[in-house]
Amino acid sequence: MKTSFVIRAVARGYNKLRSTGPLASYISGHPEAVLIRHSSFNFGPYQAGHAGFGRLRVYGDEVFSGPGCGYNMHRHHNFIICAFVLQGELTHINTVGNIDQLTSGDYYVFSAGSGGKHCEVNLKNDDMHAIYMWFLPDQLLLPPSYRRNHFDALANRNQLVTLVGNADGALRLSQDATVSRLSSDTAVALDYVPRSASHGVYVFVLEGEVHCDDVDLARRDSCGIWGAERINLGTGPQETDLMIVETAP
């Protein structure tokens, strides 16, 4: 049976984290930086919403503002952390051995596995916007790894592209999940067909407006759908950008 939910942009978890005061060791930046995090699912102090979506546990829509804003070096295990940079420049440092700088369209998959630390920081004056996703892995304590790639919105306009998962040109994920993106500049209609009826599909609108089955979604609105054989998606005539996460239950 098909079930679904809608999360409006304003209904998400909201955290405003400052680099001064009690969170100074967690949030980087000087003299004062502010990190805004909207969480689709329960994370940290926000525990009033959905626990997650299938293998996806965290979906953060984040903005790093101010000199040096970000997360200081901190430890993880197991989670596969993906970042998709929408605007600005993100500097990512990890204990796998990478110092990486990512700009609009760049994205990474950092699998913390048996243990790894990372630092996420905006070293520029302009704000950095990114989407962060955390997936549970299909095995515990995998060797830590880092891969990065680029989504070319112009070359792929009006086409759905798989960024993460088992597809040509995509970054592999140690999990039964995929992340796709559609950037359109005209009305596009498509039927999204999940791998199986047991897979769930989470649709998140980055920009523009999207018609998803019988629901209208505006900027930063999202919906999750379980049990669908196909999902009817339509973008508006204006510029639209959307992410789709498909996951096993």
Partner: peptide, 22 residues
């Protein structure tokens, strides 16, 4: 021990270990 999250923010998982772990 790593992030100081309280006990109720742990979740039971049924995920096998990677080869050679733990």
């Amino acid at each position: 021990p790593d992030c100081f999250s309280p006990k109720h923010l742990f979740q039971m998982v049924e995920i096998p270990y990677a080869a050679g772990e733990p």
